[in-house]
Design a binder for these strands. Structure first.
Lengths: 226, 226
DNA sequence: TAGATTGTTAATCGATTAACAATC
DNA sequence: TAGATTGTTAATCGATTAACAATC
């Protein structure tokens, strides 16, 4: 049962799948037709065996002795991540960050379709954010019954985040991308991913503060996370 | 050699440290004075032993039979992550995202001090972004010699990201928070963290697409990442 | 065919967590 | 003191990667 069996694909494999996708876009722009796993390793620093292992959760993608067809691999990974079909998304919180997120062109490129923008600030409700009229979050029960979005982006202040989340779950949201700097409590059937700008800076800050004490070590490949 | 020995603290521990910090802020706002590791587990879903283990890399923080003093733990974690002292940060890319990032109040709260904003678009150079005059990225050699920032936020289009990065390394940047959807190649002494909004949505999308096939399982604690 | 590279197994490595002696 | 909870050890679990038979 290959090509999509769901049983326990590690989340970190999914994350790398999304990374491969980005990299494959680069390759397509450079008109590269075929790559081998060892070329992936050279160029991204991700171990060749790991690349093959990640793919193996979903079936067979390459030709022994030849490698992987770039266009084919791209479309198959997009399929696995369901980036090949429209996913409806709502944004809650029409502040600076929410505005930047909704305005990001990569959303459309990856078939994420923002269907509504919500806020609870009466000064904002009714005004426009890009192409969207900002809706009253207090009325999400009615409006999401129409839109039927399953993914929500939460870009509200920490103090509002849990209450917003509770409401989102009520209206059928199953996946939340949380930008508020707090741990959201959700029922078990709801998936949350947290994005914390400050947390990332904190990790960088830690490494910085120690760099002067460090002696040179010897690896060569790019050292990156996420 | 406790309280800051650097030898191989897992990055994931550092990430959780930043999570603990957020949580401790919540507790302080609620005037909670003491917590035990099992309360942390209840409220955040992070295993109590893991919490204790994470802290153990840096010394002793609690009192057996009592628990952890919230204010003390907060300040010690802030110290470890060097969030107790100013870190100078530059932003490259004065677009929507860059604007939202620099405007984020959490930066100041955590002592990240944005010292300059750069762009290469002549239409933007000289204009203001919040309190900052947008500087010509072409002149960063001179300007960062003054500011001496070590952390850079890269919020430029994919096509510009690698060239920008190369230049940043030239001017002494040691840590990069990358928002461009591409893998940056950096020398071994430079740390990169990638933030990819689309990647996060892709992981959510994957989970969504399968949810209808899934039968209920039985865990209860919050299932979150990052 | 010979050479290259896959998909997968098994060994290794590292992170999570249960268990418990130390101690407040 | 008795009860609670720490810090840490050791067992478990899971992810990474080397190695190689299969195969293009």
């Amino acid at each position: 049962m290959p090509t999509n069996s769901h049983d326990k694909v590690p989340v970190i494999t999914l994350e790398r799948l999304a990374t491969y996708l980005r990299y494959l876009v680069d390759l397509q722009q450079d008109n590269v037709e075929t790559i081998s796993s060892s070329e992936v390793e050279e160029q991204t620093g991700i171990n060749a065996a790991q690349f093959r292992k990640d793919l193996s959760y979903f079936g067979e993608f390459g030709k022994p002795g030849v490698g992987y067809n770039v266009a084919d691999l791209h479309s198959r990974i997009a399929y696995i991540l369901k980036l090949d079909k429209e996913q409806r998304v709502i944004l809650v919180g029409a502040g600076n960050l929410g505005s930047a997120l909704v305005g990001y062109p990569g959303l459309k490129e990856h078939r994420f379709n923002v269907v509504a923008v919500y806020d609870n600030n009466v000064a904002k409700i009714g005004r426009n954010l890009w192409d969207f009229e900002i809706m009253d979050f207090g009325r999400i029960v009615e409006t999401n019954a129409l839109h039927n979005a399953r993914i929500a982006i939460v870009a509200v202040p920490r103090s509002a985040a849990q209450a917003v989340t509770d409401k989102l779950i009520e209206v059928g949201i199953k996946a939340i991308l949380n930008f508020a700097p707090t741990v959201l409590r959700v029922p078990e059937h709801v998936v949350v991913r947290n994005v914390s700008f400050i947390q990332e800076l904190a990790v960088l800050s830690y490494h910085l503060s120690h760099e002067d004490e460090e002696n040179k070590s010897s690896s060569k490949s790019p050292k990156q996370t996420s």
